[in-house]
Write a protein that binds this DNA or RNA. Structure first.
Lengths: 310, 310
DNA sequence: CTCATCTATTTAAACGTTTAAATGAAGTAT
DNA sequence: ATACTTCATTTAAACGTTTAAATAGATGAG
């Protein structure tokens, strides 16, 4: 691998000059600049990160804290990571994965991000890994989704809207509930606790059970909202299609409305904001991103292409 | 952050001695060793990676090449990454994410890994990102899964086993087919092309369509194998439970047999092998890991805990 | 023609480590 | 006692950069 000295030698200048050209941190005559650039391209020189970092005290790396249990309910972590990687790479950075429960040196990366819903004050401390770092919070708003779902149903004349929530042990579950309550209030509808079912866990059969509980109760409902991918799958499989159903994720169920979560936008925004922050810019403490409702779609990716993120 | 010089000063020795203690690369008297270690713990010193790497030419980093499209069909990429991170961290390494189509300096990491099925020679070049590096190949064997599924059915007396494959555009699909054919041959059963359906794509409704195609044909089958999570979900939803069904992933369907893929083992093995290779050990070029069949399980994680990886 | 000013370039120190080579202090053989 | 080992420790160079400070060369004013 070519070093800066190789370039300097080939160009017939000192290696400091090469550095000045590459970072244009000092004025350099046009002639030498050209010589240097020629040498750089000829040798295919790329600066050595470790060396540069040592002096600059910048690692050109963004750390990602990975919790052992995936606390993300709304988006696919793999896609999130891929998009974050893309965003970082196009800014010349790399992503470094680190278990959230490990204690690595903080200066292993220039900045750290994690994801997930910050704690709702009402909830017990589940997100035990409360970021000790000052990461720019970019969040996808489940409350918005819930609200939008309720609005959609009420606009179609529904008045008694059931909710199968996420179990409260899951961070972010409260936001679903919050949005639901808020939307009801705004629509001037009363809140009936009998219409809300909280499953034991976020699994397929819990969704089935929750649905059956709701159906067996004397509470009649004319619309239903289901939170959580697993739960929704269960519900949809036993659903009798009596009332409109809106699930948290438009995935692979026919004719069911669901949300598309702006994973790419989320990851890109978070990375971009962090980089801005590293450059010393004061950034908004929180940015909310909203999912978009895909009405009665078949739910396949192709069907959603036309939709814009909010 | 404390540097090695701080430690040396506190311990009253030269910083070379500190280095020798920490790496025990030179004999050090018990007395000084203790002084140094005391200073280390007192200051909470951790060696600075960048500095160390510069000299050692080791980054203590493992690069992960991330393809833009997730080519993994059998395991969850997020879990894979998490486990790889854990494995790397416990060996003192970190994981660095890099888009497979980017051209970063190779020495950004000590070694590179990627995942996915290597090309079956029969297949067109879909895994366009053929690893240019000499990564230790650790692979989960879909052929084994297919074979095992057929064996399980034949042992129960089935003779005409249907197969809903993955579309051939998906890398690894060929291995399913391969295992199916091999097992039939070994069981002394003939191959009936009419029993094999290749869906157009790997989506929910393609599974439904494939199932209906098979059911509508005059080919009667007494057992069915379905490859792919999405496809299987579709099939299971419309299945009439006439014959035993084995799907590629035991996920969230009641009473259906499926496979558990050794994601953690895979990631750990791959990382470990890479590290061994970095240490100069000659390692097996390929290691196959086998998924384990979970018979008629409810498919929830709890049900699988008793199972051992093969 | 000399001195000061400005600009382009080089020299050298620094970043935090590792490690080869040099040093020093013992101990053992002559 | 002197020289040769052996062992523990220190000195200093090296890794690939950036950057402050020094230098050289040209330009302009007096």
């Amino acid at each position: 691998m070519a070093t800066i000295k190789d370039v300097a030698q080939l160009a017939g200048v000192s290696f400091a000059t090469v550095s000045y050209v590459l970072n244009d941190s000092m004025p350099v005559s046009e002639a030498t600049r050209n010589k240097v650039l020629a040498a750089v391209t000829k040798l295919g020189y790329q600066p050595h990160r470790q060396g540069r970092n040592l002096q600059r005290q910048r690692t050109l790396t963004i750390g990602v804290l990975l919790p052992q249990a995936n606390l993300l309910c709304e988006v696919d972590l793999a896609t999130w990571l891929l998009e974050a990687t893309n965003a970082a790479t196009s800014a010349g950075y790399s992503l470094l994965l680190q278990p959230a429960d490990s204690q690595a040196r903080g200066d292993l990366a220039d900045g750290w991000i994690s994801f997930g819903t910050p704690l709702d004050p009402q909830l017990p401390q589940v997100w035990a890994l409360a970021p000790p770092f000052d990461q720019p919070a970019v969040l996808c708003d489940a409350a918005f989704a819930a609200q939008r779902a309720v609005e959609t149903l009420t606009h179609s004349g529904m008045r008694r809207i059931g909710l199968i929530t996420l179990p409260r042990s899951i961070p972010g579950s409260a936001r679903w509930y919050l949005g639901y309550r808020r939307a009801l209030r705004r629509a001037g509808l009363g809140f009936d606790p009998g219409l809300v079912v909280e499953p034991a866990a976020n699994r397929f059969h819990d969704g089935v059970a929750a649905y059956e509980t709701l159906a067996a109760s004397e509470n009649d409902y004319d619309g239903l909202i289901v939170c959580g991918h697993q739960l929704a799958t269960g519900v949809v499989m036993v659903d009798h299609a009596k009332v409109p159903v809106i699930v948290s994720h438009s995935s692979s169920q026919r004719g069911i409305s669901g949300f598309r979560w702006p994973t790419e936008l989320w990851a890109h925004t978070l990375v971009r904001k962090l980089l801005q922050q590293l450059d010393g810019a004061a950034i908004a403490h929180r940015t909310w991103l909203n999912p978009s409702l895909v009405i009665g779609s078949l739910g396949f990716k192709e069907d959603l292409d036309g939709f814009n993120y909010v």
